[in-house]
């Protein structure tokens, strides 16, 4: 089972977390009115076979958002960082 080392709570099963998608894309400035910038931010993905920077929320733990660097071909986690209060692109 995939396990994530939460910086607050320690090593936990992934079932305690909610996946929040690609965290590698910088959000366009709020005043940016260029549609293609927003389209790329919301809808286009690099979808790499390899290292992927992604959001996870520790829903059944500290409820904090984390930024996880995980290899999508092996599920090995390279790094877990404390994320923003709420990611821009997740529900």
């Amino acid at each position: 089972m995939l396990r994530i080392h939460c910086p607050h709570c320690g090593l936990r099963d992934y079932t305690e977390f909610q996946y929040g998608g690609d965290a590698s894309k910088p959000r366009p400035a709020h005043s940016d009115t260029n549609r293609s910038h927003w389209h790329a931010h919301v809808f286009l993905f690099d979808n790499p076979k390899g290292l992927h920077r992604e959001y996870w929320q520790h829903r059944l733990g500290c409820r904090q958002w984390l930024i996880v660097d995980r290899d999508t071909a092996s599920n090995l986690i390279k790094q877990v960082q404390i994320g923003p209060i709420a990611p821009a692109s997740a529900p």
Partner: peptide
């Protein structure tokens, strides 16, 4: 399973 993956190995839950 609910997160990006190319592993072909499913999670037990």
């Amino acid at each position: 399973d609910g997160f990006n993956s190319y592993t072909s190995r499913g999670q037990f839950p």
